[in-house]
Design a protein around this nucleic acid. Structure first.
Length: 272
DNA sequence: CCAAGCACCTGACGGC
DNA sequence: TGCCGTCAGGTGCTTG
């Protein structure tokens, strides 16, 4: 569910809340198949102080005081929330009880998400981080454009490909393509350098705006305090199939690209 | 190597 | 009511 802006908002909120707190105990109501087993995970984190919480791509990273790092991937429905101590709820996967009496919880209805702890020095060797592309907000649009203009697959698929650019998912891919006036099925090689630069400039703008509005909430997303975001109210195309284009008044259409629903305006995003 | 398609899960919603 | 098909902020593995 969460894309770059949502994970960024969660990371900032958590960092403000839990940095400096010690993990006193851990409860594991049921980790997912993709997570590290509780038997190896729990001993690595109990007694450790959380030094900092940050984000890379769509992964939430909590650095601990012995150099190890807890990594959470929320996938479609994962939530990481910090709040008062409470009893376990239905979709809770792992609960971290902290030194100020508060609780850091990871819940995931669909069980696609995972949590792992990388000992000091091992995070850098994690396959996911070795393959993932540059951060779109820390990379010049011209540099990002170079990564797509020679590729033959659909520009929408390239935006979703985490090794091309990190952190973009279905919402922000569709929204940035609309802002740049590019049809989602256009091949990377047919976009052209100038329009590709425009695309990544618009991507940066939409990501920054979404972060400023606390992310987008469709059904599951909440920030580190359990609050919904507001950017879903600003969508131009995502989830608006059949509704009027905010730019030209025409009817928005949807097609499937890279296995994902892609909503676009056939007039503002002409195929070339 | 690249592109496409499905698998992994649970729940919500619409149609009959 | 209930059953069935469809769809959902993402990746990762297999297949061609």
């Amino acid at each position: 569910m969460p894309e770059l802006p949502e994970v960024e908002v969660i990371a900032r909120g958590l960092n403000a809340d839990v940095a400096g707190l010690r993990i006193e105990s851990v409860e594991v109501p049921g980790l997912t198949r993709l997570s590290e087993p509780a038997e190896t995970l729990v001993p690595k984190v109990v007694g450790r102080v959380i030094e900092r919480v940050r984000r890379r791509a769509k992964v939430l990273l909590a650095d601990l005081d012995n150099g190890s790092t807890l990594a959470f991937h929320l996938k479609m429905t994962g939530r990481v929330v910090h709040g008062p101590k409470r009893v376990a709820e239905k979709h809770d996967r792992i609960l971290f009880f902290l030194s100020d009496g508060s609780l850091l919880s990871f819940a995931d209805m669909r069980k696609f998400g995972y949590v792992r702890c990388f000992p000091a020095g091992e995070l850098e060797r994690w396959d996911f981080l070795l393959k993932v592309g540059p951060e779109p907000l820390e990379t010049a649009p011209e540099v990002l454009a170079e990564r797509v203009v020679k590729r033959n697959c659909a520009i929408k698929a390239l935006l979703l490909n985490q090794s091309v650019v990190a952190g973009v998912g279905n919402i922000y891919a569709d929204e940035s393509l609309f802002r740049a006036g590019i049809h989602p099925e256009t091949r990377g090689s047919r976009v052209g350098r100038a329009r590709a630069v425009r695309l990544f400039t618009e991507l940066q703008a939409v990501l920054r705006q979404a972060i400023a509005e606390n992310g987008s909430s469709i059904s599951d997303y909440v920030n580190a305090h359990g609050d919904a975001g507001a950017f879903q109210n600003s969508f131009n195309v995502y989830g608006r199939k059949g509704q009027p284009c905010k730019q030209c008044g025409g009817t928005l259409q949807a097609t499937t690209v890279a296995g994902r629903t892609s909503t676009f305006c056939p007039a503002c995003q002409r195929r070339r």
